[in-house]
Structures are given as C-alpha cells and as structure tokens.
C-alpha cells in the first residue's frame, strides 16, 4: 500500500475520496468537523498529491481503495466520495457492499454516463492547452462549475491545488484506467448500500443529470446545497457536515 493517507479522530470510520483537479486537502475544512464523532481517513489518489504516480500500465482506483482498507484493517466503513472520488466509491459499493455501511456521494461522476458535448468541449479545450499549465489552470477554473469557489475566499487555495494537480497529470506515464464492466450506470439497480446524494445547486448541469441515474437504486436520499458549485467541500463544509452526520446517525 503505497498511497499517502492520514487518519484522525476516534469512532465509526469515514473514508473521504477527493475529486479530480484537487488532492485530499480539499477536505481540510470538513475533517476538523467530522473528527468530533468519527475516525476520518483521507488519502491522495494514485498520481495525485503526495501519492506516487502509476508505475504499472494499468491503474485500478477501486482496487487501490480495497488495498487501503485492508491495509488499515477496516472491515466496514462509510465512504464519502466527491466527483471522480464518488465514481470510485460507487464502484466499490457495488463490488463490495459488505464493506460499505453508508455511501455518501458529492456531485459524483459515473462510469458509462454520457457527458454533454458542452462539457466534453470544455475538457478538450483544457487538454489542448497542454503543456502550458498556466493556461490549463486558467481555462479549467473559468468553468461554470467553479464560479462560486473562484469568487470567494478559497480562490487561491483552489488555484494552488489545481496547479499542483495539473503538474502531476503532466508527469503521468501512459496507463490504462481499469473500471469494472459493464459500466456502473448500467448496474445502479444493484446498489443496495444506503446512499446519500449531495450536490451544489449551481454545479454543472451534467453533474445534476448524473444524480438522476441513481433513481433506480433502492435506498437513496438527495440533498441540494443551494448556492454551492462543484467545490462545495471548500465553500460549504458545515452544511456537508450536518448532512453527513444526520444521514449516518439515522
């Protein structure tokens, strides 16, 4: 287990999976609240933050999570996954439901989901700017999904994390991302774990559309945090804390 992680607090275990474009520091404001009741584990995904870049030709983020939990000897946890972290958490809950007590997804991405032309175009513009990191960061953060965070006090922190992230991405070797098949959007009827879906009200509309895919799952609650964008973790930690603790205590 070579991933960088941190454990804080005592109590039921919560594992936080960060979004793409940032590292585990996006949890800096939520963790101090959660540690009052929980044992909180945060980690950097492979190739991000302080975790090593892929050294093999294939990367399996779901298996990385399994190895982390086995290494930490945690038989059952609550998962909180943001964006691609939510995608990983969803796949994990589908594959190892017995290991997941609660599944909390914040604006998750979803394998198999067809993103809009507009969103693909947005990503493509960013990728086209490589290797000019300044331009990549600039184009990316101009996206409507970052409008709120970029107008607020966490702007510099966001820019810094984003820059670090792209610096790492540029260093990645060529590798294949392994996701379970068929894609998760075709298997959500099998999702049995108690699930809470959270999203910022002004997050990109594709991210709102992803949430609709979870309608077919058996035990799902929704909550929208008004006036938050994709970086609800930075801008609205107290609201997240309240929703997460209420949901877990239920």
């Amino acid at each position: 287990m070579d991933l960088h992680y941190e454990t804080r607090g005592k109590g039921p275990v919560i594992v936080l999976l960060h979004s793409g474009g940032v590292d585990m520091r996006e949890w800096s404001y939520l963790v101090p609240l959660l540690v009052k009741h929980f044992k909180v584990i945060t980690f950097d995904a492979r190739g991000v933050g302080n975790s090593p870049s892929p050294t093999t030709s294939q990367v399996d983020y779901v298996d990385d999570l399994l190895k982390l939990l086995d290494y930490l000897e945690e038989p059952q946890v609550s998962l909180v996954g943001h964006s691609i972290g939510g995608q990983i958490a969803t796949e994990f809950a589908l594959m190892y439901p017995e290991r997941v007590e609660n599944l909390i997804l914040i604006a998750p991405s979803l394998s198999g989901f067809e993103y809009s032309h507009e969103f693909k175009k947005y990503l493509d513009n960013i990728n086209q700017a490589a290797p000019d990191i300044n331009k990549m960061v600039d184009l990316s953060l101009k996206g409507s999904l970052y409008k709120v965070v970029m107008a607020g006090e966490h702007r510099d922190f966001m820019v810094e994390m984003h820059r670090k992230y792209f610096e790492r991405v540029l260093q990645w070797p060529a590798f294949e991302m392994i996701w379970p098949a068929p894609p998760a959007n075709k298997r959500l009827t099998n999702l049995t774990v108690k699930t809470l879906l959270l999203i910022g009200g002004v997050d990109f509309k594709d991210n709102h559309r992803v949430l609709n895919c979870f309608d077919v799952a058996s035990d799902v609650c929704n909550y929208e945090i008004i006036n938050a964008d994709h970086m609800v973790t930075l801008t609205h930690p107290s609201e997240l804390y309240e929703q997460i603790t209420n949901f877990i205590k239920e």
């Binding site: 991405s109 993103y115 990503l123 490589a130 290797p131 540029l170 590798f175 994709h230």
Partner: peptide, 20 residues
Amino acid sequence: MPRNQEENERIRNKTKEKII
C-alpha cells in the same frame, strides 16, 4: 471533474508534440 484515460493520453500527446 471526471477524467478518463483518453484525456490523459491527449494531454500526454499534446505535451510530446509541443516538445518535438
């Protein structure tokens, strides 16, 4: 922000192209 393999390849290729 969902990221996938094709995007990473894209970034890699763009970077290689720029260097060459």
